[in-house]
Design a protein around this nucleic acid. Structure first.
Length: 404
DNA sequence: TCCAATT
């Protein structure tokens, strides 16, 4: 039976549930069942012969061609065309071994060589569980077996572009995006500057909504530079705020110190050393009394009010009320925010903003609380509160932008 | 010291 292997990206058009059910390659299915995939929907499916035009005309995020009428790379490029035999594979499971990787693709065609790329320092794929990359080369019997048509692009597997200096450092970090902007919108905005290799919009893990932050990787660094010149500080049409476009940090370039410090941080740590004393000085019982005492006199909820005044209330988000906390010490971590705000009511989320390289708190953080009255109580109580030798400033979050 | 976000 002839089939073409193609890894499906469920977030892309054309990646349907039907394809998901058609999955036949047992290894990936097994991994999905064991929960080993960082993105459980990542599969290889059994499909009609799937060919593409190769790396042109579209982004690596979407199939450039879904029709069998496209010319096969074997027809156009021939078996000696190296540009069609070297693949890059993204979003591999964190714990995939070299052998598993080889075995997976060995079922498709003969592998000349393959390599899993791992983080140099930690030995893990990467600390976030993303950006797993392996490369592989198809040659030899490639044209004879099912793998003969097995050139895939889009989603998780795409042609590896020949390495060269011109394609390095072409990755952009984009922030300040309208929350309504989709990945497609983002690509549309940037595509005027060159060929987009990958794009992404980060989403809130809880709500699934856009975080207003994303990435664009161009084919060429020059294209990325032009996009910065053209789009940084600009308002996309229809947007209320300008976006920021800059070169992305490369996680693998983090210092080993920062990585270690990151590994060292347990989410379950409640009392970081430097803050322990201060936390004890904080009178939890008083705050509880305050919070619950006042709540009695605060019978109204603000939910009805929000619909009257629309979206322009400071701090108001779809999921709650975002509070800006300023003047945290560099050593602060999330636990101090939980300690401070928890007594006032339902806290959805806390976040200490850290310097990407040093991992030290940049002096501020955010807390999202579910209920307006509890958030307001927390602000009234904690604004001006002395934490150690610092006086906190606490308010609903506004849209001020920080330019450095 | 003053409003993030880094796949």
């Amino acid at each position: 039976k002839q089939y073409s292997s193609r890894i499906i990206n469920p977030y892309l058009p054309g990646s349907t549930e039907t394809q998901w059910r058609q999955a036949e390659l047992p290894q990936l299915q097994g991994w999905a069942e064991k929960g080993l995939l960082t993105q459980p929907k990542m599969i290889i499916s059994n499909m009609e012969p799937q060919v593409t035009n190769g790396p042109n005309g579209t982004t690596a995020n979407g199939p450039s061609c879904n029709s069998r009428s496209c010319p096969s790379p074997m027809q156009t490029g021939g078996p000696t065309d190296d540009s069609k035999t070297n693949l890059i594979v993204n979003y591999l499971p964190q714990n995939m071994t070299q052998e598993e990787f080889r075995s997976l693709f060995g079922s498709i065609g003969e592998i000349e060589s393959c390599k899993l790329v791992r983080d140099k320092i930690t030995g893990t794929m990467t600390h976030t569980g993303h950006r797993k990359i392996g490369g592989m080369t198809h040659r030899g019997k490639c044209k004879e077996g099912p793998g003969g048509r097995d050139v895939v692009q889009g989603g998780m597997v795409s042609y590896a572009r020949p390495s060269s200096a011109s394609i390095r450092d072409a990755n952009l970090y984009v922030s300040g995006l309208p929350k309504t902007m989709t990945q497609k919108d983002l690509e549309q905005l940037f595509s005027q500057y060159g060929r987009i290799i990958t794009s992404r919009i980060l989403v809130d893990q809880v709500t699934g909504g856009s975080r207003g932050v994303g990435f664009i990787r161009f084919d060429k660094r020059i294209e990325a530079e032009e996009a910065i010149k053209g789009l940084n500080g600009q308002k996309p049409s229809g947007a209320a705020e300008p976006i920021t476009v800059k070169f992305a940090n490369n996680p693998s370039q983090k210092t080993s110190q920062a990585l270690l410090s990151q590994l060292y941080q347990s989410p379950n740590r409640r009392y970081p050393g430097p803050l322990h004393h201060q936390a004890q000085r904080f009178r939890l019982d008083n705050l509880l009394n305050m919070a619950y005492g006042v709540k009695r006199f605060s019978p109204i909820t603000i939910d009805s009010m929000t619909s009257l005044v629309g979206m322009n209330i400071p701090g108001h988000t779809g999921t709650g009320w975002c509070i800006f906390v300023y003047n945290l010490s560099p050593d602060s971590d999330e636990s101090v925010l939980w300690q401070l705000f928890g007594p006032f009511g339902a806290v959805n989320n806390v976040k200490v903003i850290r310097d990407f390289n040093t991992n030290k708190c940049k002096g501020f953080g955010f807390v999202t609380m579910t209920n307006y009255d509890e958030a307001a109580m927390a602000i009234a109580s904690l604004n001006g509160y002395r934490l150690g030798d610092r006086v906190l400033q606490v308010s609903f979050k506004t849209n001020k932008t920080h330019k450095s």
